[in-house]
Simulated scan of single mutants.
Amino acid sequence: MGITKAKSVKGSLQAEQYKSQEIKESVFLHQNKMTGETPEERWDEMRTISELNARIQNPFIENVISPPEQYTQNFTDKDWTDLAKNYAEKMGYNENQWDAYLHKNTDNPHIHLSVNRVGTEGKTTINDSFIGQKSQKVMQEISRERGWKNAQELTEDKKAEHKTALLYAMQDSTSWQEVEKKLNS
């Protein structure tokens, strides 16, 4: 299962520009209910809609979606886009503006997805209560659907692997130095 984070934020042009930085090896994946072609244009569209509701303090939700590397090492940009769309749908974002970027500059590529909580009618259409927990549950559901193991299962697999290696190294060894030598090889 991947790691996801979601939190309500005020949002800013700088945050939108951060997601698109070349140094992040950024790839624009998708936008929903927007027509802008640049981060600045998309931000302007989202800000304009969010200003329809002056009472909301944090009109945006920033999401980070980071699946385990072993499941995404052969992902294409289309696979990443499909994951972003699947996540957004399950989070209930499809009636709102959102955009997604992929960052490839880390050992574990990840998606940044920004959502406008304010709908085109000026009403807050996405409740941010427990949004982080909801995000984790959605990622668990996506992981199950894709046959991905969760963190606990991956840890158990690693422990079993280490135990097997240790038992093998202990076979026919007469000292801990021999065990250590076998483990290192």
Rank of each mutant, 00 (worst) to 15 (best):
residue 112 H to R: 05
residue 125 T to H: 05
residue 11 G to N: 04
residue 22 E to V: 03
residue 16 E to M: 12
residue 139 M to Y: 03
residue 100 A to K: 05
residue 32 N to R: 01
residue 33 K to T: 04
residue 114 S to C: 11
residue 37 E to M: 11
residue 35 T to N: 14
residue 82 D to C: 11
residue 94 N to V: 08
residue 156 E to T: 10
residue 8 S to C: 01
residue 119 G to D: 12
residue 5 K to M: 08
residue 165 A to T: 10
residue 88 A to S: 10
residue 82 D to P: 08
residue 81 T to K: 15
residue 145 E to S: 07
residue 67 P to W: 11
residue 184 N to A: 07
residue 173 S to H: 04
residue 121 E to S: 09
residue 182 K to Q: 03
residue 49 I to K: 15
residue 124 T to P: 00
residue 30 H to V: 15
residue 124 T to Q: 05
residue 182 K to C: 01
residue 147 G to T: 08
residue 116 N to I: 00
residue 115 V to I: 14
residue 129 S to C: 01
residue 77 D to N: 13
residue 123 K to T: 10
residue 44 D to M: 13
residue 160 A to V: 13
residue 158 K to Q: 09
residue 101 Y to A: 07
residue 39 P to W: 06
residue 3 I to H: 07
residue 45 E to R: 04
residue 163 K to F: 10
residue 59 P to N: 13
residue 107 D to P: 01
residue 139 M to I: 01
residue 136 Q to G: 03
residue 63 N to E: 01
residue 129 S to T: 14
residue 100 A to R: 04
residue 40 E to I: 06
residue 135 S to L: 03
residue 144 R to P: 03
residue 24 K to T: 12
residue 85 K to L: 12
residue 34 M to Y: 06
residue 168 Y to C: 02
residue 134 K to W: 01
residue 31 Q to L: 12
residue 23 I to R: 05
residue 151 A to Q: 14
residue 5 K to I: 11
residue 26 S to Q: 01
residue 24 K to A: 10
residue 150 N to C: 08
residue 45 E to Y: 03
residue 45 E to L: 04
residue 126 I to Y: 00
residue 170 M to S: 12
